[in-house]
Amino acid sequence: MFDLVEQDALNPAVDDTPLSLCVVETFSPHPRILYTGAKISLVAWIVSVVGMSIANTTHKSFWLAYLTHWVLVISTAYIILSVLSAVYLALHPPARSDNLDGVMGVLVKSTWALFAIAAPGQVMVTILYWTLEFDVDDEVTYVNVMTHGIVMLVIMFDGFILSRIPIRMKQFVLFESVAALYILWTIIHDYSGIGNPYADGETSTQNDDAIYESIAWKNNIDGAAIICVVALIVANPVIFMACRTLSRLLPRRLCA
């Protein structure tokens, strides 16, 4: 899942020996002041978006019920770990830059795993929101645009351009597991009687307590099942493969 070996057309092997991903240069690239400063700026931006999103929420206890916010939390964790990894590797450079041992290994693997979830997760959230949830009569706000598009671009900029982190096919299981877990949560929510505090609002068109009108298990189990199955076996693989392709457009930072 965190294989460091890289061999492709952009990074050919030397004397039939495949090159390895340079962990230090990937997760703590030079010039460090410039790259780490940029990453810190991105952290401040995303954390401010999270704060505004929570502050603008009427029912704060229901904030984490939404997929958007699940992915936003994962994205925030990723961008924070991205900075921590960069700083740690700068202060504690390993003897070899092609291994994942000790504290460095834990930090790098955690950052890598979160990125493999956050990048396709943000794409999925953005597509689902603008195609299934957004109504032309809805108000377009700063927070909505940030959490359904701009944060996606920020995460991609950090992972694909600043760090050039390659996404591995084996990491698809991480992304798919989070998606499946959220679907399980929507089922539990629908049948547990937890309720939706927004369902009775003046602008609501819902006639049940489902988190999303398009995934109402009690009132439209067939429709909900179709959307979720298509997401798991069609949309998610396509989105993940697209993100994997994007992660390989720029040459990786390698070492012999």
Rank of each mutant, 00 (worst) to 15 (best):
V73R: 03
S97V: 14
I227T: 05
V108W: 03
H30W: 00
P251T: 09
A235H: 03
C228V: 02
L153N: 04
V238M: 06
S204F: 07
R164I: 13
L19W: 00
Q206C: 04
G51S: 06
I233T: 10
D8N: 15
K218T: 11
G223H: 02
P93V: 05
V5M: 05
H69P: 08
P197Q: 06
A210M: 02
S163R: 10
L10P: 08
K60E: 04
G195A: 06
G201V: 00
N196M: 01
L132W: 09
T186H: 08
A225T: 11
L254K: 10
I155N: 05
E176M: 07
T17E: 12
Y191V: 14
V47S: 02
I187Y: 06
L184C: 09
P93L: 08
V43E: 01
R96G: 10
N207I: 13
V47D: 00
P18V: 02
T205V: 15
V238S: 06
Y191S: 09
V136S: 13
I215S: 05
L84W: 14
A235L: 15
L174F: 12
W45G: 12
L246R: 05
E213T: 10
V238F: 08
P251L: 07
Y35K: 07
N236H: 10
V151Y: 07
L174T: 04
L232C: 01
G193C: 13
S85P: 04
A9F: 11
E6D: 01
A199N: 06
F160Y: 15
V87G: 12
L100G: 03
D209Y: 08
L254T: 15
W130F: 03
V140S: 02
H148I: 08
G102L: 03
I211S: 04
I233D: 10
R248G: 05
F2W: 08
L181K: 09
V136A: 14
S163C: 13
V229L: 11
N196G: 06
M146F: 06
E202Y: 13
L34H: 00
G223Q: 09
F175G: 07
